[in-house]
Nucleic acid binder design. Structure first.
Lengths: 391, 391
DNA sequence: ATGAAAGCGCTAACAA
DNA sequence: TTGTTAGCGCTTTCAT
């Protein structure tokens, strides 16, 4: 069975003549001709090539390696001629500085570590992307670790980063982390730490969060302005900070408009799909059914919408809905979901910015706390009470 | 303005007495009391601590550092007593081996690099997650690079990885890459490379792909079996491999069931939302309108569905739709979208597996090509011609 | 302006 | 079983 060298498939291959004594093949999908490459072990062995070092350059030019080092770094005291000669030779020998060696002698790895609980949703990858961009721009590499929501793994992650002598660390804790010695180890060695999203109270370091409170306030206010009066809230697990802050924003919005805060209109949900459906059903089957719901996040809002549809409750005329986080699904569902957008990539960028500043300033650095702003995205699901869903 | 040390917000803070001469605050959102930490620069300076090395342990125990090294590595010839003594001391001094130094002497960094074109969709993060899991399990770190679909950035990325002496590299090329010297540089130094998703024909290395052809075949076959006869295809940009392979699967399915291949039922789309809408309109306004469409991916399928809804074309009774890639939105839309699922995380896992094997086997390694299987996920959007969308 | 030498923290061959 | 020594590739005094 011959595989196409491009698409790796077998089904579209036909023989197509002989070339230089070798069978030639054709893949009709990829529209390319090819012969099977013959790499002998000998060929491979050739590869195992020594990488050129400053010593190689020094020998080739018959000068000392210190001179080479200086020439490569645009040092002040260096003969322009030798400098160009060295740089030319470096190019010719295809020199790549060994950053490991440099890191060792400088005690600086130009690497930052990131510890995140997971990598499954779009949330953390996006944050990492943002952080990576900023880091790369400043010449830093990023080592990523997943704690898998396990305290033990998180401790192991921290040790890996420590052993790799990262210059700084970005952390979002697991939900089960209660001891912080593995974080304090960084501080002890002067390695700055910035927490984001899931922050650690006990550590006096920089933190980056999203202004959940304000987002929730704006969302609820929007519902009120659109005429809804009996507004419920599907909240998250009470233990989470976001839950408290979003609930708090919801509560204060009601207060601001002199609407009564009704305890029975708050339903806590563990964020699973199943429990979201349960919460939705609970709210929608109340005798005094709410005319709008502010949901702790978009997936919950979407489940609520699906339940409402099944119960033939019209959105937004009979039920206004607002979510939180602006997930792609919200745009597609009908009616489209009003939501609070969080600047996810900015969390990563800000955290990395702050971390780099901390690395540069070293002792003089003063920890800072940053709270990023949210944006209300108005779509059809909160169009107004009594109004028909247009389209 | 006092910020809560947990939530970084200002709005819920109240003063709450004095403790040890310092003002105490209370955050009613977080329900915690706190005083402002006072870290003087002096406090921080203390931190900048020397990390213990094997020499420190050696001195403390009055033995040589080689003995320490051996004890720490469970070397064969070592007195059990000294071994435990060393390990105990290592623990007490909080020893963390310096992996940079180790890498330098062993010429092995225990790090693999990944170069991906972007990080915005869920596709590449998921692959990276899979690769990272496998790597971490084997004690490898992962350095990630984004080429941003730019050839030049990709070259820079390759140099970064080279300079960091990674032990192997995972690559998905940019769409503008036409020269491959920066990849060949890895080979030249015996650093194994595995391509995934966007592979490079010119390099005789391992490759991991998804069986797009078979996925498309199954999808189209499914439509045929459900009674659709006039099946169109919204394809991707002709330059992409996935476009050709999915088109090829579509074509062969028609052939298998002796249905005519009609050129006018193929519409190419650049995958942007705008062009997806254009393609959808083009197909649905034909005199001889297709009764089903196999779409090159889910976002395109979703746009098609939205256009069809607007035109009051009933899905699936008047129009069957199948997408590709199983994105979350497909589950939420009504009717739910039938799609071909790709094992995204498996791509990363497989690629990393193959790479680690290549690293271990070094010269003896023979490049391999892997094509991962797809799964058809049947939902309502392809429910059958003339049938009503249930629910 | 350049070279010699020490050392970053570690491993490993060779002695003892 | 343990110590001695020589590097890995680089930077950085200190001489010259």
């Amino acid at each position: 069975m011959i595989k196409c060298i491009r698409c790796c498939h077998v089904h579209a291959i036909t023989k197509s003549g002989i070339v230089r004594g070798k069978q030639r093949y054709y893949c009709k999908d990829c529209n390319i001709y090819f012969t099977l490459p013959d790499v002998s072990a000998a060929d491979m062995r050739q590869h195992k090539k020594h990488m050129t070092t400053i010593v190689d350059i020094a020998k080739a030019l018959n000068i000392s390696k210190s001179t080479v080092s200086r020439a490569l770094h645009e040092h002040s005291d260096i003969n322009p001629q030798t400098r160009t000669a060295v740089q030319e030779m470096a190019r010719r020998l295809d020199y790549q500085p060994n950053l490991l060696a440099k890191s060792l002698v400088k005690s600086k790895s130009n690497t930052i570590g990131i510890i995140v609980p997971e990598f499954l949703t779009y949330f953390f990858p996006t944050i990492i992307m943002g952080a990576q961009q900023v880091a790369a721009q400043a010449g830093y590499n990023v080592i990523i670790c997943q704690s898998q929501e396990s305290y033990q793994t998180e401790v192991a992650n921290a040790n890996v980063l420590l052993a790799n002598r990262v210059d700084g660390v970005l952390i979002s804790m697991t939900k089960e982390t209660r001891k912080f010695d593995h974080f304090k180890a960084f501080e002890k060695h002067g390695i700055p730490v910035v927490f984001f999203n899931r922050v650690c109270d006990e550590m006096h370091t920089s933190k980056v969060l999203v202004n959940d409170y304000e987002g929730a306030l704006k969302a609820t206010e929007h519902l009120i302005k659109n005429g809804y009066r009996n507004i419920a809230h599907i909240a998250g697990p009470p233990a989470l900070l976001i839950t408290r802050n979003r609930l708090s924003g919801y509560r204060d919005a009601l207060e601001k408009y002199k609407l009564p805060f009704q305890k029975e209109l708050i339903v806590h949900c563990d964020l699973s799909k199943k429990d979201a459906i349960r919460s939705a059903k609970q709210l929608l089957s109340m005798k005094n059914r709410p005319d709008a719901v502010f949901c702790v996040n978009d997936p919950v809002a979407i489940q609520l919408m699906l339940v409402a549809k099944k119960l033939k409750i019209t959105i937004p005329s009979e039920l206004g809905i607002v979510g939180f986080s602006n997930e792609p699904s919200g745009e597609v569902i009908d009616p489209a979901l009003t939501t609070v957008e969080q600047p996810v990539a900015d969390i990563g960028r800000s955290a990395a910015d702050i971390l780099l500043k901390a690395i540069r300033q070293a002792e003089d650095y003063v920890p800072e706390m940053k709270s990023l702003q949210t944006t209300l995205i108005v779509r059809a699901s909160s169009g107004g009470i009594g109004r028909r869903n247009k389209r």
